[in-house]
Amino acid sequence: MATRDLPALGGHPEGFAGSMRTDRWWIEPVLTVLVLGAFGVYATWAAFQGNHYYADPYLSPFYSPLIFVDSAAAVPGGAPEHHAWFGGHWPAWWPAFLPHSPAFFILAFPGAFRFTCYYYRKAYYRAFTGSPPGCAVVPTAKSRRYKGETAWLLFQNLHRYAMFFAVLFIPILGYDALLSFWKGGLPWDGGQFGIGVGSLVLTINVILLGGYTFGCHSFRHLIGGKDDCMSCGKATMRLKLWKRVTILNMKHQNFAWFSLFWVGFTDVYVRLVSQGIWTDLNTWG
């Protein structure tokens, strides 16, 4: 007879992360914790640095758009004043305990987008909260009061607002990628056209982020999915768009990981070139 320690009816284990699976289902959650954890630590560290985010003509995506720069302080690897939307006067209301890092103005937006993303929700509910850690694996916190996304997780329903902001970042980062081909500014500012490894790094970055952002489930819903009759017999734009977005949406997981890795790598690249540790191969000499 089944007791508390013996298998329950049907022989299914009930204990912590119990499962009869014989494959290595735990690799996926472990990798997720490691990669997301490492990215979170690196991004926070990089945001707190407030320096070496610029190596003409490359601007790190962690710092773009530049809202303010602090031109009073001689920031090593900082961007020139004309790059910042609101100039070089660091706001006086800035709390003293925080470094003057332009990343703080913007990182919350892509952060909120990824945090509320339907794909990342799957990944971290499984990996961080074990709910469940794998399929046909007993949830690690097996509470009877499980409420899904109905109680305090209701805020996840605002994902579309995070998406609106994330969409705005794509042309901005696209512009950064364009600028990365002009050393010293655009042609009318006396810039010189060329190409460097950094130009490719920034261009790949915006392509991957675009693939991720435009494959968003909320985007797919709003551009057409919300309608039952997307064509109603006509070749409509919304059906065409919905089909394209669907292609990206089916690859949302891949774009989520590749773009995450690449945006981090882009910051690393700009940082190391700015510090003179890496040399950017380019046509400017």
């Binding site: 799957k122 509910y125 399929c135 499980y146 899904g148 996304e149 109905t150 997780l153 089916m250």
Partner: peptide, 22 residues
């Protein structure tokens, strides 16, 4: 619908490969 936390195990096991969650 709010009880589902979109962890996609349904999609993973569906023998008809229906993208249930997405």
């Amino acid at each position: 619908s709010g009880m589902c936390n979109i962890t996609k195990c349904c999609t993973d096991v569906c023998p008809e490969h229906i993208k249930i969650t997405d």
